[in-house]
Nucleic acid binder design. Sequence first.
RNA 1: GGGGCUGUAGCUCAGCCGGAUAGAGCGACGGUUUCCUAAACCGUAGGUCGUGGGUUCGAGUCCCGCCAGCCCCGCCA
Length: 606
Amino acid sequence: MVGDPMLRIAETLESQLRAAMERAFPDAAAAARQAGPGLDPQLAPASKPEFGDFQANGALPLAKPLGQPPRKIAEAVVEQLKADPAFNALCQDPQIAGPGFINLTLKPERLAAEVQVRLGDQRLGVPAVEQGAPVVVDFSSPNIAKEMHVGHLRSTIIGDSLARVLEFRGHPVLRLNHVGDWGTQFGMLITHLKQVAPEALNTADAVDLGDLVAFYRQAKQRFDEDETFQTTSREEVVKLQGGDPVSLKAWGLLCDQSRREFQKIYDRLDIRLSERGESFYNPYLERVVADLDAAGLLVVDDGARCVFLEGVSGKDGKPLPVIVQKSDGGFNYATTDLAAIRYRFGADPEGDAARRVIYVTDAGQANHFAGVFQVARRAGWVPEDGRLEHVPFGLVQGEDGKKLKTRAGDTVRLRDLLDEAVERAEADLRRRLEEEGRSEDEAFIQQVATTVGLAAVKYADLSQNRITNYQFSFDRMLALQGNTAPYLLYAVVRIAGIARKGGDLEAVASAGSEPLRFAEPQEWALVRELLKFDAVIAEVEEELLPNRLCTYLFELSQVFNRFYDQVSVLKAEEPARSSRLALCRLTADTLKLGLGLLGIPTLERM
RNA sequence: GGGGCUGUAGCUCAGCCGGAUAGAGCGACGGUUUCCUAAACCGUAGGUCGUGGGUUCGAGUCCCGCCAGCCCCGCCA
């Protein structure tokens, strides 16, 4: 078990700095400890490479209380630091800069040693947690009888990536597909089909998914316009939820059909997912309502059973309700979500015993989840140390800046999007082959086009901070230049090329090799970039922001491309050659692992 | 009316616990290939961080007001 070298260095430095500050200013330290956690060295990664590896800003806030200029304070701290042999073993002489920053640069041999450690480590310096309670990641969640469209892409890809990161860290992850297979929509659809296409309700594959989508649209329209249809649909839902065999059979057929279509998309995108739809929680709904009642949280209002939220008021200043049972007796999505929360945190045979539950849905549902989470907490269904998190992402907007709506008909189907991505990647590849006079067989072209096209789609989505809305654009999403998946894949390909031309990447990673020797600034830049990986993974695990990983991998690729451009590897003399090969090896491993955590496979040639 | 999110270069976006001269990509302009894949590299131009206050040694970042866009607000999910 290697631990997390860079993180450990940061912690070591922090405690050394704190000790130095306390020796320099014992009175201030005592006072700070009295008031709170004590003196804070404010250690942070250096904001610019020329400042070294770390900067400590802790001298500045002391200027006022101590009545001394901050640079003088920094000098006193530095003096104490230089008296610490452990510090001197780690760092070069600290520099004081600007108004009173203390800049720290790690000793080169220390950095080289860290690279060496990671070369021999499968996990590249990222520690594995002890196996603990499961983490539930609820993502993708398409609706039965609807086709997956671009809106589902974000949830699917972001959720998958978060699950991969959590799994890599060693958490047992439950990837749950909370498909919309229950509720009013089925009442609508079954009622409509009974009238216009009854065969679809008792014969498998009597209609295909495209037809089903059309029927759904018609049913939705009738539901919005026709009060009688609305009532019949609601009755149908109650029958279904009550276990009526005819309704159940029809429902089962519809689900099977959609499920097969979803699976095709998941297979293409290499998404692993356990289906556990809304219907799964049906047997628990009554108890949810009963227990809310027993807890004294339930209020009947206008015939509906509600829990009124604390701290959230609606139009008239009245608290906002979460409706858990409709006036017609039917349950709705809030009830299902409550049952799901309870089940996921619940103890083993009747639950998942999770400690962290993550929902990857669009930001439009933020209010809904805030309400449901509050009710679950007040009902006592979230354990003390349980984390219940909504991971919202921005809406996919049309060219008009408005939400892309299913009903509007201008939705881009996910399968069409993926097809287009692969086609564009293929056309681009064929053009390159032509220009470069290369000749490749058809299998190679298909393989590369598929990988590049799908990677471009995934990366386009993941590389953006998920919280902001984005305007859907084929050109932007499928761009193959700049900060895109192909740029990262290309860096891997370049390293594979070095290996093909005689660079032994296996040997440099074996134990007992010569110490690494670096001299060029491009080498040091790459070393420093490589050593950030573990901190990035820790951050993604905590913040659930895959774009941080994307940014890192892009920067690593940039630094590598500069290195590759300006420093030759294979033609270098020893020991530079082996040391550079080692950097190539670790870069490739880091990119492969990092891209893998984004759900993107790499290539040897492209 | 209430609530949430967003507003940073021509466009699309990063910007971590408040830290030094606000960064990328695209687009524009100019350059680099007898050498490991040029899907690359280097350079130039481009900014009142929506706006007005406040907090403090220091604010794109925190607090308040305002403006703009999007989303949500009782029996759809």
